[in-house]
Nucleic acid binder design. Structure first.
Lengths: 229, 229
DNA sequence: GCAAAAGTGTTTCCCCTACACCCATGG
DNA sequence: CCATGGGTGTAGGGGAAACACTTTTGC
Protein backbone atom coordinates (compact mmCIF):
# COMPACT_ATOMS: atom_id res chain seq x y z
CA UNK A 1 0.00 0.00 0.00
CA UNK A 2 1.46 3.36 -0.97
CA UNK A 3 2.04 5.95 1.67
CA UNK A 4 -0.59 8.60 1.27
CA UNK A 5 1.01 11.15 3.61
CA UNK A 6 3.96 12.88 2.02
CA UNK A 7 4.36 16.30 3.60
CA UNK A 8 7.65 17.55 5.04
CA UNK A 9 8.18 15.83 8.34
CA UNK A 10 10.37 16.35 11.37
CA UNK A 11 13.43 14.14 11.72
CA UNK A 12 13.44 11.51 14.43
CA UNK A 13 16.31 10.78 16.79
CA UNK A 14 17.05 8.96 20.04
CA UNK A 15 19.17 10.03 23.01
CA UNK A 16 20.25 7.93 25.98
CA UNK A 17 21.03 8.77 29.57
CA UNK A 18 23.28 5.92 30.69
CA UNK A 19 23.63 5.50 34.46
CA UNK A 20 26.33 3.57 36.26
CA UNK A 21 27.24 3.21 39.91
CA UNK A 22 30.69 3.07 41.46
CA UNK A 23 31.94 3.10 45.05
CA UNK A 24 31.30 6.80 45.45
CA UNK A 25 28.32 7.91 43.48
CA UNK A 26 26.02 7.74 40.51
CA UNK A 27 27.64 8.34 37.13
CA UNK A 28 26.44 9.27 33.66
CA UNK A 29 28.09 8.46 30.36
CA UNK A 30 28.75 11.41 28.05
CA UNK A 31 30.25 11.69 24.60
CA UNK A 32 32.26 14.62 23.36
CA UNK A 33 30.86 15.91 20.08
CA UNK A 34 33.23 16.07 17.15
CA UNK A 35 31.04 18.03 14.74
CA UNK A 36 28.90 21.09 14.65
CA UNK A 37 26.56 22.02 16.13
CA UNK A 38 28.00 22.11 19.62
CA UNK A 39 31.37 20.73 18.48
CA UNK A 40 33.57 19.97 21.48
CA UNK A 41 30.65 20.05 23.89
CA UNK A 42 29.68 17.02 25.94
CA UNK A 43 26.39 15.35 24.96
CA UNK A 44 24.28 12.29 25.55
CA UNK A 45 24.94 9.36 23.23
CA UNK A 46 22.32 9.18 20.51
CA UNK A 47 21.57 9.49 16.84
CA UNK A 48 18.92 9.34 14.16
CA UNK A 49 16.28 6.65 13.84
CA UNK A 50 16.34 4.79 10.55
CA UNK A 51 13.28 3.83 8.63
CA UNK A 52 11.78 0.54 9.80
CA UNK A 53 13.72 0.73 13.01
CA UNK A 54 11.97 1.09 16.34
CA UNK A 55 13.20 3.81 18.70
CA UNK A 56 14.35 1.18 21.20
CA UNK A 57 16.34 -0.59 18.49
CA UNK A 58 17.90 2.68 17.42
CA UNK A 59 18.88 3.42 21.00
CA UNK A 60 20.54 0.03 21.39
CA UNK A 61 22.34 0.42 18.10
CA UNK A 62 23.69 3.83 19.07
CA UNK A 63 24.81 2.61 22.48
CA UNK A 64 26.71 -0.16 20.79
CA UNK A 65 28.26 2.03 18.13
CA UNK A 66 29.16 4.99 20.31
CA UNK A 67 29.98 3.33 23.61
CA UNK A 68 30.44 -0.36 23.00
CA UNK A 69 27.54 -1.19 25.29
CA UNK A 70 25.34 -4.24 24.77
CA UNK A 71 22.53 -5.97 26.64
CA UNK A 72 21.84 -3.09 28.98
CA UNK A 73 18.61 -2.34 30.79
CA UNK A 74 16.88 0.22 28.59
CA UNK A 75 13.64 2.08 29.05
CA UNK A 76 11.92 4.86 27.19
CA UNK A 77 11.83 8.14 29.08
CA UNK A 78 10.07 10.91 27.16
CA UNK A 79 9.91 12.39 23.70
CA UNK A 80 11.37 15.87 23.31
CA UNK A 81 10.07 17.70 20.29
CA UNK A 82 10.14 21.47 20.76
CA UNK A 83 10.81 23.03 17.34
CA UNK A 84 13.89 24.97 18.44
CA UNK A 85 15.79 22.23 20.21
CA UNK A 86 18.16 21.47 17.32
CA UNK A 87 19.62 24.34 15.26
CA UNK A 88 19.79 22.14 12.15
CA UNK A 89 16.03 21.88 11.89
CA UNK A 90 13.11 20.18 13.55
CA UNK A 91 14.42 17.05 15.23
CA UNK A 92 12.21 15.12 17.60
CA UNK A 93 14.10 12.91 20.01
CA UNK A 94 12.79 9.88 21.85
CA UNK A 95 14.87 9.94 25.01
CA UNK A 96 15.73 6.73 26.87
CA UNK A 97 17.65 5.86 29.96
CA UNK A 98 19.87 2.86 30.52
CA UNK A 99 21.33 1.18 33.58
CA UNK A 100 24.66 -0.61 33.35
CA UNK A 101 26.92 -2.50 35.70
CA UNK A 102 30.06 -0.41 35.98
CA UNK A 103 31.71 -3.37 37.68
CA UNK A 104 31.76 -5.14 34.32
CA UNK A 105 35.19 -4.74 32.79
CA UNK A 106 33.81 -4.34 29.29
CA UNK A 107 32.22 -1.02 30.13
CA UNK A 108 35.42 0.67 31.20
CA UNK A 109 37.44 -0.77 28.34
CA UNK A 110 35.06 0.26 25.59
CA UNK A 111 34.72 3.80 26.78
CA UNK A 112 38.40 4.38 27.36
CA UNK A 113 39.06 4.14 23.67
CA UNK A 114 36.62 6.65 22.24
CA UNK A 115 35.90 10.20 23.34
CA UNK A 116 33.56 9.19 26.12
CA UNK A 117 33.69 9.56 29.89
CA UNK A 118 31.73 8.97 33.06
CA UNK A 119 30.68 12.02 35.09
CA UNK A 120 29.25 12.20 38.59
CA UNK A 121 25.63 13.30 38.48
CA UNK A 122 26.44 16.23 40.77
CA UNK A 123 29.26 17.33 38.57
CA UNK A 124 28.10 17.48 34.97
CA UNK A 125 29.52 19.88 32.40
CA UNK A 126 27.19 22.02 30.30
CA UNK A 127 25.58 19.77 27.74
CA UNK A 128 24.71 20.23 24.09
CA UNK A 129 21.14 20.77 22.82
CA UNK A 130 18.52 20.30 25.54
CA UNK A 131 20.43 17.36 26.96
CA UNK A 132 20.62 19.00 30.36
CA UNK A 133 16.84 18.88 30.63
CA UNK A 134 16.79 15.30 29.38
CA UNK A 135 19.29 14.30 32.03
CA UNK A 136 17.26 16.00 34.75
CA UNK A 137 14.15 14.13 33.77
CA UNK A 138 16.02 10.82 33.62
CA UNK A 139 17.51 11.43 37.04
CA UNK A 140 14.09 12.22 38.49
CA UNK A 141 12.59 9.15 36.86
CA UNK A 142 15.31 6.89 38.23
CA UNK A 143 14.87 8.30 41.73
CA UNK A 144 11.13 7.71 41.56
CA UNK A 145 11.12 4.34 39.86
CA UNK A 146 13.81 2.71 41.93
CA UNK A 147 11.42 2.90 44.86
CA UNK A 148 8.65 0.80 43.37
CA UNK A 149 10.35 -1.35 40.76
CA UNK A 150 13.40 -3.58 41.26
CA UNK A 151 15.48 -1.86 38.61
CA UNK A 152 18.30 -0.85 40.94
CA UNK A 153 19.80 -4.32 40.67
CA UNK A 154 20.72 -3.51 37.08
CA UNK A 155 23.37 -1.18 38.49
CA UNK A 156 24.92 -3.78 40.79
CA UNK A 157 27.08 -6.81 40.09
CA UNK A 158 25.12 -10.02 39.99
CA UNK A 159 26.28 -11.00 43.48
CA UNK A 160 26.45 -8.25 46.06
CA UNK A 161 26.45 -7.65 49.81
CA UNK A 162 23.46 -5.90 51.35
CA UNK A 163 25.60 -2.91 52.21
CA UNK A 164 26.12 -2.30 48.49
CA UNK A 165 22.40 -2.40 47.84
CA UNK A 166 21.81 0.10 50.61
CA UNK A 167 24.54 2.31 49.25
CA UNK A 168 22.82 2.26 45.87
CA UNK A 169 19.57 3.47 47.38
CA UNK A 170 21.30 6.11 49.45
CA UNK A 171 23.08 7.48 46.41
CA UNK A 172 20.07 7.44 44.15
CA UNK A 173 17.61 8.80 46.72
CA UNK A 174 20.25 11.15 48.08
CA UNK A 175 19.52 10.53 51.73
CA UNK A 176 20.83 8.19 54.43
CA UNK A 177 18.85 5.06 55.27
CA UNK A 178 18.71 3.17 58.54
CA UNK A 179 20.73 -0.01 58.21
CA UNK A 180 18.50 -2.18 60.37
CA UNK A 181 15.27 -1.15 58.74
CA UNK A 182 16.64 -1.37 55.23
CA UNK A 183 17.88 -4.91 55.71
CA UNK A 184 14.70 -6.09 57.36
CA UNK A 185 12.52 -4.66 54.65
CA UNK A 186 14.54 -6.03 51.76
CA UNK A 187 14.98 -9.47 53.23
CA UNK A 188 11.37 -9.88 54.32
CA UNK A 189 10.28 -9.03 50.82
CA UNK A 190 11.70 -12.38 49.76
CA UNK A 191 13.12 -11.36 46.42
CA UNK A 192 16.76 -11.98 47.30
CA UNK A 193 18.53 -15.27 47.11
CA UNK A 194 20.96 -15.78 49.96
CA UNK A 195 24.19 -17.23 48.62
CA UNK A 196 26.72 -19.41 50.44
CA UNK A 197 29.44 -16.93 49.68
CA UNK A 198 30.98 -13.90 51.27
CA UNK A 199 32.98 -10.92 50.10
CA UNK A 200 36.70 -11.32 49.60
CA UNK A 201 39.61 -8.94 50.08
CA UNK A 202 38.13 -6.93 52.91
CA UNK A 203 40.06 -6.12 56.06
CA UNK A 204 37.19 -6.83 58.39
CA UNK A 205 34.34 -9.25 58.72
CA UNK A 206 33.23 -10.33 55.26
CA UNK A 207 29.60 -9.74 54.32
CA UNK A 208 27.32 -12.40 52.92
CA UNK A 209 26.50 -12.12 49.23
CA UNK A 210 22.99 -12.03 47.75
CA UNK A 211 21.49 -12.25 44.31
CA UNK A 212 18.27 -10.71 43.00
CA UNK A 213 15.86 -13.47 42.01
CA UNK A 214 13.67 -12.38 39.16
CA UNK A 215 11.75 -15.62 39.44
CA UNK A 216 10.85 -15.00 43.06
CA UNK A 217 9.97 -11.43 42.30
CA UNK A 218 7.53 -12.42 39.58
CA UNK A 219 5.96 -15.12 41.70
CA UNK A 220 5.47 -12.76 44.63
CA UNK A 221 4.19 -9.98 42.40
CA UNK A 222 1.43 -12.26 41.17
CA UNK A 223 0.54 -12.97 44.77
CA UNK A 224 0.10 -9.27 45.45
CA UNK A 225 3.51 -8.17 46.62
CA UNK A 226 4.20 -4.57 45.96
CA UNK A 227 7.87 -3.72 45.95
CA UNK A 228 8.53 -0.51 47.83
CA UNK A 229 11.63 0.92 49.38
CA UNK B 1 22.19 26.12 8.74
CA UNK B 2 21.43 23.39 6.18
CA UNK B 3 20.17 20.09 7.41
CA UNK B 4 22.95 17.55 7.00
CA UNK B 5 20.82 14.47 7.62
CA UNK B 6 18.66 13.60 4.64
CA UNK B 7 17.97 9.88 4.70
CA UNK B 8 14.48 8.38 4.49
CA UNK B 9 12.82 8.86 7.82
CA UNK B 10 9.81 7.42 9.60
CA UNK B 11 6.67 9.54 9.72
CA UNK B 12 5.63 11.03 13.02
CA UNK B 13 2.12 11.06 14.43
CA UNK B 14 0.27 11.65 17.69
CA UNK B 15 -2.63 9.74 19.26
CA UNK B 16 -4.73 10.74 22.25
CA UNK B 17 -6.57 8.74 24.87
CA UNK B 18 -9.23 11.14 26.12
CA UNK B 19 -10.79 10.24 29.47
CA UNK B 20 -14.03 11.58 30.85
CA UNK B 21 -16.10 10.69 33.89
CA UNK B 22 -19.87 10.49 34.19
CA UNK B 23 -22.22 9.26 36.92
CA UNK B 24 -21.52 5.63 36.18
CA UNK B 25 -17.99 5.10 35.03
CA UNK B 26 -14.87 6.18 33.22
CA UNK B 27 -15.26 6.88 29.52
CA UNK B 28 -12.95 7.16 26.53
CA UNK B 29 -13.51 9.17 23.39
CA UNK B 30 -13.21 7.27 20.10
CA UNK B 31 -13.50 8.31 16.49
CA UNK B 32 -14.82 6.11 13.72
CA UNK B 33 -12.37 5.97 10.84
CA UNK B 34 -13.64 6.99 7.43
CA UNK B 35 -10.68 5.89 5.36
CA UNK B 36 -8.43 2.91 4.86
CA UNK B 37 -6.66 1.39 6.58
CA UNK B 38 -9.15 0.16 9.17
CA UNK B 39 -12.05 2.05 7.58
CA UNK B 40 -15.14 1.86 9.78
CA UNK B 41 -13.14 0.75 12.81
CA UNK B 42 -13.06 2.83 15.99
CA UNK B 43 -9.75 4.51 16.76
CA UNK B 44 -8.14 7.06 19.04
CA UNK B 45 -8.19 10.63 17.82
CA UNK B 46 -4.85 11.60 16.32
CA UNK B 47 -2.93 12.58 13.22
CA UNK B 48 0.40 13.50 11.78
CA UNK B 49 2.85 15.96 13.29
CA UNK B 50 3.74 18.86 11.03
CA UNK B 51 7.18 20.26 10.64
CA UNK B 52 8.04 22.82 13.32
CA UNK B 53 5.18 21.64 15.45
CA UNK B 54 5.78 20.01 18.82
CA UNK B 55 4.02 16.72 19.54
CA UNK B 56 1.98 18.38 22.29
CA UNK B 57 0.86 21.11 19.90
CA UNK B 58 -0.07 18.51 17.30
CA UNK B 59 -2.10 16.61 19.88
CA UNK B 60 -4.00 19.76 20.89
CA UNK B 61 -4.62 20.65 17.27
CA UNK B 62 -6.01 17.20 16.50
CA UNK B 63 -8.23 17.22 19.56
CA UNK B 64 -9.65 20.51 18.43
CA UNK B 65 -10.12 19.47 14.81
CA UNK B 66 -11.50 16.00 15.41
CA UNK B 67 -13.43 16.44 18.63
CA UNK B 68 -13.88 20.14 19.23
CA UNK B 69 -11.93 19.94 22.48
CA UNK B 70 -9.87 22.84 23.81
CA UNK B 71 -7.92 23.64 26.95
CA UNK B 72 -7.85 20.09 28.23
CA UNK B 73 -5.33 18.57 30.60
CA UNK B 74 -2.84 16.83 28.32
CA UNK B 75 0.18 14.74 29.12
CA UNK B 76 2.57 12.70 27.07
CA UNK B 77 2.25 8.96 27.59
CA UNK B 78 4.69 6.93 25.52
CA UNK B 79 6.03 6.76 21.99
CA UNK B 80 4.98 3.75 19.97
CA UNK B 81 7.30 3.00 17.08
CA UNK B 82 7.32 -0.68 16.14
CA UNK B 83 7.88 -0.90 12.37
CA UNK B 84 4.74 -2.93 11.66
CA UNK B 85 2.21 -0.86 13.57
CA UNK B 86 0.83 0.99 10.54
CA UNK B 87 0.28 -0.88 7.24
CA UNK B 88 1.00 2.28 5.24
CA UNK B 89 4.63 2.41 6.31
CA UNK B 90 6.75 3.23 9.30
CA UNK B 91 4.77 5.64 11.46
CA UNK B 92 5.97 6.49 14.93
CA UNK B 93 3.29 7.81 17.22
CA UNK B 94 3.75 9.92 20.31
CA UNK B 95 0.77 8.87 22.42
CA UNK B 96 -0.82 11.27 24.90
CA UNK B 97 -3.68 11.12 27.32
CA UNK B 98 -6.13 13.87 28.13
CA UNK B 99 -8.60 14.48 30.95
CA UNK B 100 -11.79 16.42 30.30
CA UNK B 101 -14.81 17.50 32.31
CA UNK B 102 -17.72 15.64 30.80
CA UNK B 103 -20.00 17.91 32.77
CA UNK B 104 -19.06 20.74 30.45
CA UNK B 105 -21.75 21.14 27.84
CA UNK B 106 -19.30 21.89 25.08
CA UNK B 107 -17.90 18.38 25.18
CA UNK B 108 -21.17 16.64 24.56
CA UNK B 109 -22.21 19.09 21.85
CA UNK B 110 -19.04 18.91 19.84
CA UNK B 111 -18.87 15.15 19.78
CA UNK B 112 -22.52 14.65 18.87
CA UNK B 113 -21.96 16.23 15.52
CA UNK B 114 -19.07 14.23 14.13
CA UNK B 115 -18.51 10.49 14.08
CA UNK B 116 -17.26 10.30 17.63
CA UNK B 117 -18.57 8.64 20.76
CA UNK B 118 -17.78 7.96 24.40
CA UNK B 119 -17.26 4.34 25.46
CA UNK B 120 -17.02 2.85 28.92
CA UNK B 121 -13.49 1.66 29.62
CA UNK B 122 -14.82 -1.84 30.35
CA UNK B 123 -16.72 -1.94 27.12
CA UNK B 124 -14.44 -0.88 24.29
CA UNK B 125 -14.82 -2.14 20.73
CA UNK B 126 -11.82 -3.54 18.87
CA UNK B 127 -9.61 -0.63 17.94
CA UNK B 128 -7.59 0.17 14.84
CA UNK B 129 -3.78 -0.11 14.68
CA UNK B 130 -2.19 -0.77 18.09
CA UNK B 131 -4.65 1.59 19.75
CA UNK B 132 -5.81 -1.13 22.10
CA UNK B 133 -2.33 -1.33 23.60
CA UNK B 134 -2.10 2.46 23.77
CA UNK B 135 -5.38 2.62 25.65
CA UNK B 136 -4.24 -0.04 28.10
CA UNK B 137 -1.09 1.87 28.90
CA UNK B 138 -3.00 5.12 29.33
CA UNK B 139 -5.48 3.46 31.64
CA UNK B 140 -2.68 2.00 33.74
CA UNK B 141 -0.92 5.35 33.86
CA UNK B 142 -4.05 7.14 34.97
CA UNK B 143 -4.70 4.57 37.73
CA UNK B 144 -1.15 4.97 38.98
CA UNK B 145 -0.80 8.71 38.67
CA UNK B 146 -4.10 9.66 40.19
CA UNK B 147 -2.78 8.32 43.48
CA UNK B 148 0.18 10.65 43.81
CA UNK B 149 -0.72 13.69 41.71
CA UNK B 150 -3.90 15.75 41.95
CA UNK B 151 -4.90 15.20 38.33
CA UNK B 152 -8.24 13.60 39.12
CA UNK B 153 -9.80 17.02 39.60
CA UNK B 154 -9.45 17.59 35.88
CA UNK B 155 -12.26 15.07 35.44
CA UNK B 156 -14.64 16.78 37.86
CA UNK B 157 -16.62 19.98 37.59
CA UNK B 158 -14.95 22.91 39.26
CA UNK B 159 -17.24 22.66 42.28
CA UNK B 160 -18.07 19.21 43.53
CA UNK B 161 -19.25 17.33 46.62
CA UNK B 162 -16.82 14.98 48.34
CA UNK B 163 -18.94 12.03 47.37
CA UNK B 164 -18.18 12.77 43.72
CA UNK B 165 -14.46 12.88 44.40
CA UNK B 166 -14.64 9.53 46.16
CA UNK B 167 -16.63 8.10 43.29
CA UNK B 168 -13.90 9.23 40.89
CA UNK B 169 -11.27 7.39 42.86
CA UNK B 170 -13.41 4.29 43.21
CA UNK B 171 -14.02 4.17 39.48
CA UNK B 172 -10.44 4.82 38.47
CA UNK B 173 -8.87 2.52 41.06
CA UNK B 174 -11.66 -0.01 40.57
CA UNK B 175 -12.21 -0.73 44.24
CA UNK B 176 -14.45 0.58 47.01
CA UNK B 177 -13.06 3.08 49.50
CA UNK B 178 -14.09 3.72 53.07
CA UNK B 179 -16.08 6.93 53.24
CA UNK B 180 -14.82 8.08 56.63
CA UNK B 181 -11.17 7.47 55.90
CA UNK B 182 -11.34 8.96 52.45
CA UNK B 183 -12.89 12.20 53.69
CA UNK B 184 -10.52 12.54 56.58
CA UNK B 185 -7.49 12.03 54.40
CA UNK B 186 -8.54 14.42 51.67
CA UNK B 187 -9.65 17.17 54.03
CA UNK B 188 -6.63 16.96 56.30
CA UNK B 189 -4.42 17.33 53.28
CA UNK B 190 -5.65 20.90 53.05
CA UNK B 191 -5.81 21.20 49.29
CA UNK B 192 -9.56 21.69 49.09
CA UNK B 193 -11.38 24.95 49.48
CA UNK B 194 -14.64 24.58 51.38
CA UNK B 195 -17.36 26.59 49.65
CA UNK B 196 -20.48 28.13 51.17
CA UNK B 197 -22.62 26.23 48.74
CA UNK B 198 -24.40 22.92 48.59
CA UNK B 199 -25.72 20.65 45.88
CA UNK B 200 -29.08 21.40 44.36
CA UNK B 201 -31.82 19.18 42.98
CA UNK B 202 -31.24 16.23 45.23
CA UNK B 203 -34.02 14.49 47.10
CA UNK B 204 -32.12 14.14 50.33
CA UNK B 205 -29.67 16.13 52.39
CA UNK B 206 -27.58 18.31 50.12
CA UNK B 207 -23.82 17.91 50.30
CA UNK B 208 -21.39 20.77 50.73
CA UNK B 209 -19.38 21.72 47.65
CA UNK B 210 -15.60 21.95 47.47
CA UNK B 211 -13.08 23.26 45.01
CA UNK B 212 -9.52 22.11 44.39
CA UNK B 213 -7.10 24.89 45.26
CA UNK B 214 -4.04 24.73 43.08
CA UNK B 215 -2.51 27.57 45.08
CA UNK B 216 -2.81 25.67 48.35
CA UNK B 217 -1.50 22.53 46.73
CA UNK B 218 1.63 24.26 45.49
CA UNK B 219 2.25 25.98 48.80
CA UNK B 220 1.90 22.72 50.71
CA UNK B 221 4.01 20.82 48.21
CA UNK B 222 6.87 23.21 48.81
CA UNK B 223 6.49 22.56 52.52
CA UNK B 224 6.94 18.85 51.99
CA UNK B 225 3.41 17.59 51.51
CA UNK B 226 3.17 14.49 49.44
CA UNK B 227 -0.21 13.92 47.94
CA UNK B 228 -1.24 10.30 48.23
CA UNK B 229 -4.60 8.59 48.10
C1' DG C 1 -41.82 9.64 60.13
C1' DC C 2 -39.21 7.30 56.87
C1' DA C 3 -35.83 6.79 53.26
C1' DA C 4 -31.45 8.19 51.68
C1' DA C 5 -27.39 10.04 51.83
C1' DA C 6 -24.31 13.57 54.50
C1' DG C 7 -21.20 13.75 57.87
C1' DT C 8 -18.52 12.29 62.48
C1' DG C 9 -15.96 9.38 66.61
C1' DT C 10 -13.19 5.91 67.98
C1' DT C 11 -10.69 1.54 68.45
C1' DT C 12 -7.39 -1.67 66.78
C1' DC C 13 -3.51 -3.03 64.73
C1' DC C 14 0.38 -2.91 61.85
C1' DC C 15 4.40 -0.99 60.13
C1' DC C 16 7.83 2.59 59.97
C1' DT C 17 11.29 4.91 62.84
C1' DA C 18 14.89 5.34 65.84
C1' DC C 19 18.41 3.71 68.47
C1' DA C 20 21.42 0.46 70.97
C1' DC C 21 23.73 -3.45 71.09
C1' DC C 22 26.52 -7.80 70.00
C1' DC C 23 29.49 -10.46 66.57
C1' DA C 24 33.18 -11.76 63.37
C1' DT C 25 37.44 -10.81 61.21
C1' DG C 26 42.10 -8.74 59.90
C1' DG C 27 45.99 -6.51 61.45
C1' DC D 1 43.03 -6.46 71.64
C1' DC D 2 41.30 -2.97 68.94
C1' DA D 3 39.32 -1.03 64.80
C1' DT D 4 35.91 -1.77 61.34
C1' DG D 5 32.03 -2.91 59.51
C1' DG D 6 28.45 -7.05 59.62
C1' DG D 7 24.43 -8.30 61.64
C1' DT D 8 20.30 -8.22 65.21
C1' DG D 9 16.41 -6.83 69.08
C1' DT D 10 12.98 -3.96 70.47
C1' DA D 11 10.16 0.11 72.35
C1' DG D 12 7.27 3.69 70.79
C1' DG D 13 4.43 6.47 67.79
C1' DG D 14 1.58 7.59 63.75
C1' DG D 15 -1.44 6.52 60.54
C1' DA D 16 -4.37 3.24 57.80
C1' DA D 17 -8.39 0.06 58.18
C1' DA D 18 -12.74 -1.15 59.96
C1' DC D 19 -17.05 -0.12 61.80
C1' DA D 20 -21.01 2.17 64.17
C1' DC D 21 -23.27 6.05 64.87
C1' DT D 22 -25.75 10.78 64.47
C1' DT D 23 -27.60 14.54 61.41
C1' DT D 24 -30.05 16.71 57.71
C1' DT D 25 -33.28 16.97 54.04
C1' DG D 26 -37.22 15.80 50.67
C1' DC D 27 -41.40 13.53 50.17
Amino acid sequence: MPFTYDYPRPALAVDCVVFGLDEEDLKVLLIRRGQEPYAGRWALPGGFVRENESPAAAARRELHEEAGLRDVYLEQLYTFGAPGRDPRGHVISVAHYALVRLSDHRVAAATDASDAAWFGTDDLPRLAFDHGAIFEMAHARLRAKVRYQPIGFELLPERFPLRMLQHLYEVVLDRPLDKRNFRKKVLEMGILEELDEVETDVSHRAARLYRFSKARYQTLTKKGLNFEL
